[in-house]
Design a protein around this nucleic acid. Structure first.
Length: 594
RNA sequence: GGGGGUGUAGCUCAGUUGGUUAGAGCGAUCGCCUGUCACGCGAUAGGUCGAGGGUUCGAGUCCCUUCACUCCCGCCA
């Protein structure tokens, strides 16, 4: 029999009344009535109320024991009278009368309370993460994470995927994010890099003939943090399949995500077959490549209408002539909204660095007119054309922004979110997945004016590879895709380019000659020339999936031991200085910036 | 690298127009209390108001600098 407990703290029920038991756990809470003391004993599984009175010789000592001390108690399970039953805990029908107790782990005065629903500064939570993790909500988040990962592993196995580990010490890749580097002792002056993703390895696994691979893979990127982005490391469900087209990857991922989200959340799925939106469409209709489809508002481009003579909105017309565009958002049946509703949005837009959002409301039975500060600039015919183009009706309002395309996308995307929130149009009880597809292979860097890969240089260009027009590289689309859920980018993937000649050609467009490709991607390009199967895959972010399922806005709420924004682990004191001997072994010397 | 927010007791926070000895709840310590489940009641201790400088007769409060945390932009194939 176990030395510490006969039952856990969520096990005892009415049927156990009369049993002598022993329990171990943390003192979650004490309620001291002077001659009668209640102790809520907590472990991973739950809480059991234990009770002792002054007749017991242990009473005085136990009364003084600190919260969060780990104790073992011996006692008898007894019934509770009807009026003292606690429905909030699963063991609430019974309690344990303490006969004897032992301290297993003492506890100093706590730097932060464990039993409390209050929010605390993250600094203290991260420093005492082991205390923070005892707290109910985050404890449950971490358990959820574990269960989600187990479930995914199981599903992937059922789908015929094999799990493989890939190296953590690998080589630095020239593309992509900043690498974490590890100096090599045996190869002075040379460095390993931690993998930003097992991208090349998983392709090599396909070339090696394993057909379907997955891994819950740690990924390391030395980039700045965000609320939904841990500094340093995160996990992806990395997967890759041979002899597949885009649709085959979609089928697997849709089945997996639908099953996972149905199992771990009560929220509804807006689509079980995820809609596909092209990259160019999503930028136009939603202003972003991660659209939140719960939001019904859609952006329309009405630039052309501004060339009409009967629109006298000269500021916009002038901007349009110099290359700006006009886009608008229609809000349904907002004619009775107070002036302040519109002005607040305009004011908000100015705070976001835009020149503001013009607006008007469409009115009239027979004669259509526009009410609002800029309404007078639009003739009836012009309004009718706008209504036709945007499907706006009488009683709807239209918010207009005018600017150069990139800035316009930014502000309309933000405005779409802001207006939807103000009008309460977003259903928080829905998960809305979609695919963003047809990414361009290349894009032009605005600063350098150079042609660059827009996403992954290993992606396969679309269409008949013998008919690709390399003269117009910006028109080449790739079999490159993202999954977005509720406006959060969950993953991106691609059908890979497994044809070496085509790869050299594409790299040459981005300014890499054959020799450079051979050096920088030697493993890959070499492997592809020895019989590579067509293959493709994707890598959904585990942390973000759990974040959505746990209904958290911050990735640290689903990460057991996260670093802070400055990429420091306040509990372990990482990163830390190393001593001279270590530096010497690695042939390193420090040259710190002042 | 840039912009916003926050920083007052161990924790969560209040602190008015610059004005006496900086407060509350939780926690800690001590005392009272035998049916609570956020138990209740009373008392005590606990403060470099993030740090430095300035304005002022007087600064938690105003100004400047700086640090920490956080959110965002850049960055993240």
């Amino acid at each position: 029999m176990n030395k510490y407990r006969s039952h856990n703290c969520n096990e005892l029920r009415k049927k156990d009344i009369g049993k002598n038991v022993f329990l171990s756990g943390w003192i979650n809470k004490k309620r001291d009535h002077g001659n009668l003391l209640f102790i809520d004993l907590r472990d991973n599984y739950g809480i059991t109320q234990c009770i002792i009175d002054k007749e017991n010789s242990n009473f005085k000592e136990l009364e003084k024991t600190q919260l969060e001390t780990v104790i073992k108690i011996n006692g008898k399970v007894v019934d509770r009278t009807k009026d003292t039953i606690n429905k909030d805990i699963e063991t609430g029908d019974i309690e344990v009368v303490i006969e004897d107790y032992f301290v297993l782990g003492t506890c100093r005065e706590l730097p932060m309370p464990v039993f409390s629903d209050q929010e605390y500064a993250e600094e203290i939570r991260l420093k005492y993460r082991f205390l923070d993790l005892r707290r109910k909500k985050i404890h449950e988040n971490i358990i959820l994470r574990s269960k989600v990962i187990s479930f995914i592993r199981n599903e992937m196995s059922k789908l015929g995927f094999l799990e493989f580990q890939t190296p953590i010490l690998t080589s630095s890749s020239p593309e992509g994010a900043r690498d974490f580097l590890v100096p090599s002792r045996l190869n002075p002056g040379k460095f390993y890099a931690l993998p930003q993703a097992p991208q090349q390895f998983k392709q090599l696994i396909m070339v090696s003939g394993f057909d379907k691979y997955f891994q819950i893979a740690p990924c390391f990127r030395d980039e700045d943090a965000r609320a939904d982005r841990s500094p340093g490391e995160f996990y992806q469900l990395d997967l890759e399949m041979s002899f597949v087209e885009q649709e085959d990857v979609f089928d697997v991922v849709e089945e997996l995500l639908v099953n996972t989200f149905k199992k771990f959340s009560n929220k509804k799925l807006m689509f079980e077959k995820f809609p596909k939106i092209s990259y160019s469409d999503t930028l136009l209709k939603y202003g972003t490549d991660k659209p939140d489809l719960r939001n019904p508002l859609i952006i329309n481009d009405i630039t052309e209408i501004f060339s009409r003579q009967d629109i006298t909105f000269e500021i916009f017309k002038k901007l349009v002539k110099s290359g700006s565009k006009v886009r608008c958002i229609v809000t349904k049946n907002t004619k009775d909204k107070p002036r302040s509703f519109f002005d607040n949005i305009d004011k908000w837009a100015k705070e976001q660095g835009a020149s503001g959002l013009a607006y008007f409301t469409i009115e009239g039975d027979k004669k259509i007119s526009a009410k609002g500060p800029v309404g007078k600039f639009f003739s009836e015919d012009a309004l009718k054309e706008i209504m036709k183009k945007t499907e706006a009706k009488v009683g709807d309002s239209i918010f207009l922004a005018c600017s150069k395309q990139k800035e316009l996308e930014r502000i309309t995307s933000l405005a779409r979110e802001k207006i939807a929130n103000d009008l309460n149009l977003i259903d928080e009880n829905i998960f809305s997945f979609c695919w963003v597809v047809d990414y361009p292979m290349f894009e032009r860097d605005e600063q350098t004016n150079k042609i660059e890969f827009s996403h992954n240089p290993f992606s396969m260009p679309q269409g008949d590879i013998n008919k690709i027009n390399f003269e117009k590289p910006l028109d080449i689309l790739a079999y490159q895709y993202d999954i977005v859920c509720n406006g959060i980018e969950l993953s991106s993937g691609a059908i890979r380019n497994h044809i070496p000649d085509l790869m050299y050609k594409l790299f040459s467009i981005a300014g890499y000659d054959k020799k450079q490709v051979d050096t920088k991607f030697s493993g890959m390009i070499n492997a592809l020339s020895y019989g590579a199967p067509p293959h493709g895959g994707i890598a959904p972010g585990i942390d973000r999936i759990v974040m959505l399922l746990a209904n958290e806005k911050n990735i640290r709420e689903v990460t057991m031991f996260p670093m802070n924004q400055n990429a420091q682990d306040l509990m372990m004191n990482a990163p830390s200085e190393i001593n001279e001997k270590q530096l010497k072994e690695l042939s390193l010397s420090l040259k710190l910036k002042k």
